[in-house]
Design a binder for these strands. Structure first.
Lengths: 240, 240
DNA sequence: ATAAGATTGAAACGAACGTTTGAATCATTT
DNA sequence: AAATGATTCAAACGTTCGTTTCAATCTTAT
């Protein structure tokens, strides 16, 4: 069994079909028969090659997240090396984090816009094993970027930065995943259904200013860590 | 069959259980037997009272969205009446739209934080009938607020406003729904698991400045309508 | 009290689900 | 050519799904 040669790459066919179908119908809404039907392989092939439907989903993501994670770390390493110990600009951090993601959407060999949409949708999937899987896959990268943002915005309380990181992830996920989900809500005049490689470029131009504006918004008047709730006067600290 | 009297309010018990379970496990991840089991009613009761699982989901939302829609329209009517024909402030519009939503989260009789989370999660559900249902339920309100934002920000292209409306919805949905979904991603130091009535108040203080910052962010350099794609040179129209 | 209608109950329906089986086929090596 | 291991195949596994059935029970009006 050499992996070179004219093998029908059943594994890749399954992964591609599953990626598209999970994006379109969700994990629970996609059946094994849909996947193997679209891939043109036998029903038993998924369990033979991956073991189970859960393991297939994990592999669908691992195939892409390996690249995304290392690339995000590489981009941050590069920034920090260029800065020579100085704190980074928030916009540079966002560019590294979300720009790397959006670049995936322009490269079909990395999953293209399909994987971006799958990723955005799956982050809200309620299934337990999905959440714990993502937690493990993302932990290192998130930790590094969180620390970079703490240094970049020293006057903003870390708790607030985490919140805004969370909010940026949400906005970006919707921007990516919501092609038809929320499109239908907002009135569908916008051309989000552009599946071409510049769809992600247009997305970037639209979303990045929004995220930066949100990240640098003035802080709320009062912010209380859950421990120190008896601070009577809003000292109204400045935001960057 | 009078609706008054000591009826065991089977319908309400089912709706409450379904609301919680759909929030926790999603639509496809929640079975009829889970719902009727949690509600303490017979399995056949759902089909008897609602007709089908799909119709049950619609009723779960209709019960809450009726209040939300009329209240959002009422808040906007009030603003426009006070303004006497002048354009509204963007912050007032956001306050009316998202503040009304967050107020639901403080009132357990309106579904409380449970319904808010369900709403945030369901907006990304891929099932077709869910998307078309939401489109119909939201159409009027979204249209009114969109028009108000167009008037409030006359120097911003309508397409850009729609985009940012979309992004704000995404951020808010994640902020609400992501209690454990993205919490696990960002590191779980934040106290989003506060289920008390002030959870929504804290959410508002955190999220509203972010949304306003994003809405008022500088525009991207170039923006092109999808029709005029053969524009060779980015004429770089001005931002506000 | 009795009839009529609304609601509940236990049991089963066919369909679809993820998974497993074991023989058949293919690719590769001796 | 024969043998070996990897892969594919059709078929079936047991389970769970949403839904239906119909008799039993409760509620209300006559």
């Amino acid at each position: 069994m050499n992996e070179a040669k004219t093998q029908p790459d059943t594994r890749e066919r399954i992964l591609d079909a599953a990626e598209r179908l999970f994006m379109e119908s969700g994990y629970e809404g996609t059946s094994m028969r849909m996947i193997t039907g679209e891939a043109g392989v036998n029903l038993a092939a998924v369990n033979y090659h991956f073991g189970s439907k859960e393991a297939l989903l994990r592999e669908v993501f691992r195939r892409r997240l390996n690249w995304l994670n290392t690339e995000r770390l590489r981009a941050l390493d590069l920034l920090e090396q260029q800065a020579q110990g100085a704190p980074l600009k928030p916009s540079s951090i966002l560019e590294a984090f979300f720009g790397t993601l959006l670049r995936m959407g322009t490269d079909e060999t990395l999953g293209g816009i399909t994987f971006l949409r799958l990723l955005g949708r799956t982050l809200t999937e309620p299934a337990d094993f999905i959440r714990t899987f993502f937690a493990g896959e993302y932990a290192e990268v998130i930790e590094r970027y969180k620390k970079a943002l703490f240094r970049a915005l020293p006057e903003v309380p870390p708790e607030e930065i985490i919140w805004r990181f969370h909010l940026m992830l949400g906005a970006m996920s919707y921007a990516i995943a919501g092609t038809d989900a929320l499109q239908v809500v907002t009135g569908c005049e916008v051309d989000m259904n552009n599946d071409g490689p510049d769809a992600a470029a247009q997305l970037a131009a639209r979303v990045m200013p929004f995220l930066l504006g949100g990240l640098r918004a003035p802080l709320p008047q009062f912010q209380q860590s859950p421990e120190q709730q008896n601070k009577p006067e809003p000292t109204s600290s400045k935001a960057a």
